[in-house]
Design a protein around this nucleic acid. Structure first.
Lengths: 136, 136
DNA sequence: GTACGTGCAAACAGTTTGCATCATG
DNA sequence: CATGATGCAAACTGTTTGCACGTAC
């Protein structure tokens, strides 16, 4: 996996927790909280503490292997960044189910923005909230 | 102000902290954290504790007088909901400066979404992050 | 006067920091 | 074997809960 290679940049060591966390994030199709990562690690019989997860996650963020997303419940969530996979999320307010959403002409807004502001935009967040099929 | 009237619905009492917090949120043009609300209250010589702010903010959220926004730093921010004022934000990653942004054809995406998903969407969040004029 | 709201203390949840020990390269 | 990473304890920040006192209606 590419992430594994990227970690070894700049002399970062490829340790068991780092490998395991990267793999989990690459394999999961929705953003995970620190606790959820912890639970996945346990399932794979990898024992770490939350602090190590926080630190690995910070490293992966710096290396741009993952990105951070918030759903408004005070927990940060983390998700692997894959090529040609830019997407957003719909979250069910009731059961928490997450679905990915892809838009075609997303720079439609980026272009409007360029005209309206002098900020140099690096990234954006766009999430939708509502009720899934099962919850209404 | 409308908020004041709405509070009195359902027998909610119009107390000093509630009035002051509502006014502050109505007058500020960017989303405030709990601490920032606290500081504004102090400036106005209204003494409360953070717990009361949390509770008032929760009330105002339920009454749909304000909305909650996150900028990714782990703090919730609160902003008055005004009529015909639906907007989003650009946040400077360096100095934290916030600018409001208005889009014309925003339901362009809403329509795309309706086709793609069976979720019943209630709201969305859209924030942009980058550097302001002064910071790059 | 009677709920309802406040403000204090204290608990709780998410996250960060310090430091001795461990293990990758 | 040296430096970087881990894992524990402990601190810190944001948020919630419990309860006696105060106050709007």
């Amino acid at each position: 996996m590419k992430t594994i290679a990227v970690i070894k940049q700049r002399g970062n060591r490829l340790t068991k927790p780092r490998k395991a966390i990267s793999t989990i994030l690459l394999q999961t199709k929705f953003p995970l909280t620190i606790k959820e990562i912890m639970n996945q690690l346990k399932k794979n019989d990898v024992y770490t503490d939350t602090v190590s997860i926080y630190r690995t996650v910070k490293l992966l963020l710096n290396l741009r292997c993952i990105q951070q997303i918030e759903f408004g419940d005070g927990k940060k969530r983390f998700e692997a960044v894959k090529e040609n996979n830019h997407h957003h999320h719909i979250i069910c307010d009731k059961c928490g189910k997450v679905e990915e959403i892809f838009f075609k002409d997303e720079n439609y807004f980026a272009l409007q923005l360029k005209k309206k502001t002098q900020y140099k935009i690096h990234r954006h967040s766009l999430e939708f909230f509502g009720l899934c099929q099962n919850c209404y």
